[in-house]
Amino acid sequence: MKRIVLLLAAVFVATLILTPNTVFSQENNYQLKPEKSKIEWLGKKVTGEHSGTIFMKQGNLTFDADQLLGGSFVVDMTTIVNTDIEDETYRAKLEGHLKSDDFFGVDKFQESKFKITSAEKLADGKFKVIGNLTIKGITEIAELMVNVHKHGKMLHVNGKMIIDRTKYNVRYGSGSFFDNLGDKTIYDEFQLDLDLNFE
């Protein structure tokens, strides 16, 4: 009997030594709170800029202690709105154009997605995140910097992503593909500012 107990103890110790990451894993899964999260977008052209918001349907992040392991997000493209134009008619016209096939083709592509493939922990809650971004059915590698801070049970994430829209077949008004646009040129890159809350 004593020999069996010693044998079991030895197996347990060996398991601890050989697989420490599994035995002591502290994985935590956080779910996005869409009603407490938003994304602000900014697009620029030669003659100015426009800004607005867009919202997420769902998302999650997985941590092992304070290391970000992965996560994924689904953006509701039907929620694109403009916030800088006061005239209702002009604002509705711009929103309709952004949702049209000239830009994001929302009737056909109602969702955009981002899936984390790797995350490098930096200082002071900062992470360099790399993942697969899918817009209009086209997937490209994207990178962003985020700040992660915990407040009780809540996890707050903010960051900025710069996206080259032409990689996703959004080429309307792009000087990279069309000549002689003059002051109608719309810059290829647009910016997303993330303000996300998880629990």
Rank of each mutant, 00 (worst) to 15 (best):
Glu49Ser: 13
Tyr187Asn: 08
Lys160Gln: 15
Thr62Val: 14
Phe178Ala: 07
Arg91Ser: 04
Ser51Lys: 08
Phe127Lys: 04
Leu16Tyr: 08
Lys93Glu: 10
Met154Asp: 15
His149Trp: 06
Asp193Val: 11
Ser176Gly: 11
Thr53Asn: 14
Lys128Tyr: 11
Gly137Gln: 05
Glu120Cys: 06
Asn169Phe: 05
Leu196Glu: 05
Met145Leu: 15
Trp41His: 00
Asp193Gln: 13
Asp107Ile: 06
Gln31Asn: 14
Ala123Pro: 12
Lys38Arg: 15
Asp183Gln: 06
His151Glu: 15
Ile138Ser: 07
Asp124Cys: 08
Asp66Gln: 08
Lys153Ile: 09
Met145Tyr: 12
Leu133Lys: 03
Leu42Lys: 14
His50Met: 00
Ile130Gln: 14
Thr19Val: 12
Ile130His: 14
Asn197Phe: 11
Asp195Met: 06
Asp87Trp: 07
Glu143Pro: 06
Phe177Lys: 07
Leu42Gln: 12
Asp183Phe: 02
Trp41Pro: 00
Leu69Met: 09
Ala92Asn: 13
Val157His: 00
Gly70Tyr: 07
Ile135Gly: 02
Asn197Ala: 13
Val81Met: 11
Leu194Arg: 04
Arg91Leu: 04
Asn60Asp: 13
Met145Cys: 08
Ile141Met: 12
Thr134Pro: 03
Ala119Tyr: 03
Leu133Gly: 00
Val75Tyr: 01
Gln110Arg: 11
Ser176Glu: 11
Asn147Arg: 10
Gly59Pro: 04
Leu196Met: 07
Tyr168Val: 00
Val81Arg: 12
Met154Cys: 10
Val74Gly: 07
Asp66Ile: 02
Phe103Thr: 02
Ala9Thr: 13
Lys99Ile: 02
Lys115Ile: 15
Ile85Ser: 06
Ser174Arg: 08
Asn197Thr: 15
Gly152Leu: 05
Glu143Phe: 08
